[in-house]
Design a protein around this nucleic acid. Sequence first.
RNA 1: GUGGAUGUAGCUCAAUGGUAGAGCAUCGCUCUGUGGCAGCGAGGGCUGCGGGUUCAAUUCCCGUCAUCCACCCCA
Length: 434
Amino acid sequence: MAKKSPKNKSVKGKILPQSPKGMHDILPEEQPRWEKIRGMLYKIADAFNFLRIDTPIMERAEIFERSGEATDLVEKQMYFVKTKGEDRFVLRPEATASIMRAYFQNGLSKISQPLKLFYIGPMFRYEQPQAGRFRQFHQIGFEIIGDEDDSIYDAQIILASFRLIEELKIKNLIIQINSIGCRQCRHAYIKKLEEYYKNKQDEICKNCRQRLATRPLRLLDCKEEKCQPIKMEAPLIVDKLCNNCKRQFKSTLEYLDSLSLPYSLNPYLVRGLDYYNGVVFEIISEVPELNFALAAGGRYDYLSEMLGEKKVCAVGSAVGIERLIEAMRFYDIPGQLRNEAKVFLAYIGEEAKKKSLFVIEELRKAGIKTIESFIKESLKSQLRVADKKEVKITLIFGQKEVFEESVIIRNMETGNQETVPLIRVVEEVKRRLH
RNA sequence: GUGGAUGUAGCUCAAUGGUAGAGCAUCGCUCUGUGGCAGCGAGGGCUGCGGGUUCAAUUCCCGUCAUCCACCCCA
């Protein structure tokens, strides 16, 4: 995301510590887009009646280990945190498992269902940074838990995620959607897939041979050219779904149709985590420059059992905030506009400086944002700052004005100046701002 | 974990085996209580870090760290 490459600063031969690889400072100039995304999230979450939940950024490792045994995410990408005790803590690589944990721990399973939750916060994955990928990154998520496996909730999750991105004005959005079936039909399908690939081992790429051994569903992800013809002929999971899964998938698509959401069936779409089943989706902005999913999610009816609790059906999605920002930059979408100050206070001399915070306070109490530059001593340089900040009015407050208990109001456009009594400064400024 | 590119001022980027430059930005002066424009000037760099070759390295070589890109994987 950062276009520049930070340098190691040397101070007398010593290297100033840098932020960890793949973890970045979010500087003031980048904040407006973050602010816009947060604002849009709160708006969407409120409209769809999702309630906010925050979980700790650390969890016991087993929470994630149980939810994704065979995935890279838990096998090699977790940050373990060293503590004094024996506990094995990790920085969370995702939030869904944490939320399911919180759901049971806090008795949320006992209140009226389904529970619609959202979160926003940092996630941590130890991997090689690259476009749209960082070691510390931020996700927004929507989760609906305890929904009795009703596909209207799949549709609602997709809808909320889609609207969040769409209303940020990110263009060319399309929902890639697929079903990866339930335990039964997926198991049967994987067997078929393995059989199909088994006698083609010599024709496929190195990665695919590995996938065949460990995570056969991932075979469908391969982009290697020589694997494509084989992939094309491979059995598709959509053709092997059981009746229930087929019905769920069809029903979800019907909801999307009725909402006129743009989607594209992608029979090769699978998920990174083990707990997913049924409908899975990704939302992408379909341009070559944005080569990553902005949001992804699906149903996870098995997660609660993997954590050792009773079965609770659920569906959710996660949105990558840095990826949204990358897309906003690509489409030149500005961030949240700042509340720019219209008034600048310039002081001349120590006496005026001493009283200037008081004057600014009077204006602040009246809702008038006033800026200053106390570091500059000359009136000239203070006016230069005022000019650069494009304020409408500069208050000039010098020795003479302190003595007279007055202040000069300068119109920065015309250069006209008037002296008014200090006690009337708020109303005089107000009048001129309208 | 694998491969490629890159690293020089706050930013964008030049240059050269022999004392490191521009534009923008910052600050100052012209103008001692009055901005924009203009002119003039200043500050700011152990050329990412460490080592090697060399009389001499920012330049060549090696290592390392970081960034970017691709793979793996993923939001």
